[in-house]
Write a protein that binds this DNA or RNA. Structure first.
Lengths: 344, 344
DNA sequence: CTGAAAGCGCTTACAG
DNA sequence: CTGAAAGCGCTTACAG
């Protein structure tokens, strides 16, 4: 039988209300009783029942996250560790825990969110997906429940969210390759329905247009966030008569497949083709040669998401901004300078 | 204002008790009232307050995990994703959620566990660490609270746990290398205070002794679970007059550093030296050449941990077994066969 | 088959 | 400064 406030009160010879006030450091309590009650709490090994506390206070001191379902598992898996760590670190620092569940189907996902929100188990929700037409976003808005979206939502532009400026990031990468003298630049993209894919492609196109460089549709390959995707793309790309001298790749793991494909076809990076990828997960510095990659600040995204959501919860003034996490181009050895005779 | 059982009762013209019984599918309720109440619940958008439910039922339907603190962060980080996914998948399947927190110091860790356990927020705890003299293990035993340990505990042998047979795994790897003709086999180990390091080293020694092969202490290097560790070890190892022809490495990431070191020194894998590592995380198939590695079933460990813990909670018969997850040697291209003239 | 009542362990006006 | 009482939203003997 765990010890309750009542037990402590009895031993201390005070009322339960007084014990409760001591716990919450109520100002109008005599230092003497406070000291006594505190001593007895420790002696008896008292610890408040958070569930009971939560029931009356209507606060859980908990944030909720739903794991992405299988379809996007792979993409998110790579980030997952760093991301969750960022979320938990900041949440813990502010005295919040993290409640997690996963949904295999969309309806299971909705069920989990409902359980969290209507079951009063969390004070706020972090949404990992940025799909079009997401019913969870709709639900949370209807409930007027605090939440933050990772990524961008086109339908719900006025929602609290953290994201990268993926258009700008891809633009920056493209411009960098152009500055090295590349004129034929290809793009190995991710699933076209994802906002992140669309944004990066847009930045790439913008940079090419601005520099008056050609943009051929057969230089753009769409795939999954899988090594295989990159690998397979190469047999096509490398056999092109007008093949690109540089490739932008939407993810490090995909880039790894690209490197493998290129190597197997007997070509060299960066001598035959330059590569620049995204996400800067640990793999990117482990390839031969080490890959240049865009660091999108995954840990910081998680950290910031927690922080912004908690502010919303605590100040109860639902600000609806979009927070942009800065990106950084990490230059390694996968890009070569072009000199003019090679350009033909 | 969320709708409560009382609200539903009022509209349905029954008592709250009846509504409660309908929700829990109590047998002695007329199908007619049941149907009516259910209809009204849906109409009113009723969802039970899990906190209130938890207070009276004394069940939270939640498992707790504490994230490892920084010291071991890196080692566990690599597994983390897969591991948590295994835990969550199985927990969700059985209707449980996962509550997470992290502690930077040992006392913060204890605080988090206490909050979970004494605060009645979880029904069981999964312990990720397998340190010596772990106060959290002691606490949970004293509280007689359901928990499962990942790894092995020497002081607490009679505790529910999931682990690999690391002695056997290292033994198997060593025997495999011996079968290829290697006679000088080195070991790049992890932090010596970790049980996993000790176990693997033991299996390695056992196999060598059994085959009457030499075991020199300068063939054994202890380090961290970091790429740098492996990298640094190589300048020493490769300059040995009697340098090993094969190396067992405690982790894929460390092995990556080893490959880098070997390559920079102008040697080749597996021609100059064979490598076999542990954990089989995604990196291992991405190196050049692809690394042979021991698959220790990380996802399955998480999955099994959830499952065993939940059985303990639900059947309330605290069985205290040690569950061993089988390992598999994944043979790739990093080990060469030795022929006799090379052996000298 | 159903309801009234007590209680889970807390908090917090209200009163003194 | 402190206590008695009501209540958070549920469950569950007990009685009928």
């Amino acid at each position: 039988m765990p010890v309750t406030i009542k037990d402590v009160a009895k031993v201390a010879g005070v009322s339960p209300s007084t014990v409760s006030r001591v716990i919450s450091n109520h100002p109008r309590i005599s230092p003497k009783t406070a000291a006594k009650v505190k001593r007895i709490m420790i002696e008896m090994g008292y610890h408040p029942n958070m569930v009971a506390k939560s029931l009356v206070s209507k606060k859980s001191n908990t944030l909720g996250v739903i794991l992405p379902r299988p379809a996007e598992e792979l993409f998110l898996n790579l980030f997952f560790s760093e991301f969750i760590r960022g979320i938990v670190t900041q949440a813990t620092r502010q005295g919040y825990d993290l409640l997690m569940s996963s949904g295999t189907t969309e309806s299971e996902e909705m069920e989990a969110i409902t359980r969290f929100v209507k079951g009063r188990r969390v004070d706020g929700v972090i949404l990992l997906s940025s799909k079009k037409n997401d019913p969870t976003v709709k639900f949370l808005r209807e409930q007027n429940f605090p939440f933050i979206l990772i990524g961008r939502s086109d339908e719900h532009a006025d929602v609290l969210s953290v994201d990268n400026d993926n258009v700008q990031a891809a633009y920056d990468v493209t411009k960098y390759l152009i500055s090295l003298g590349h004129e034929r630049i290809g793009f190995v993209s991710g699933p076209p329905q994802l906002v992140v894919s669309q944004d990066r492609l847009e930045g790439y196109k913008k940079a090419l247009k601005e520099s008056n460089l050609p943009m051929k549709s057969h230089w753009i390959v769409e795939g999954e966030f899988l090594q295989e995707s990159g690998y397979r793309a190469m047999s096509m790309i490398m056999n092109l008569a007008d093949r690109p001298t540089a490739l932008i790749i939407t993810d490090d793991l995909v880039a790894y497949g690209v490197v493998r494909g290129i190597t197997e076809l007997g070509y060299q990076v960066p001598d035959d083709i330059s590569l620049f990828s995204f996400n800067n997960i640990s793999i990117s510095e482990l390839t031969t040669p080490p890959l240049s990659s865009v660091d999108i600040g995954i840990y910081q995204m998680g950290y910031t998401a927690s922080q912004a959501l908690l502010r919303n919860i605590q100040e109860d003034q639902h600000d609806q901004r979009r927070i942009v996490i800065p990106h950084r181009l990490i230059i390694r050895q996968s890009c070569a300078k072009m000199n003019s005779q090679e350009r033909s």
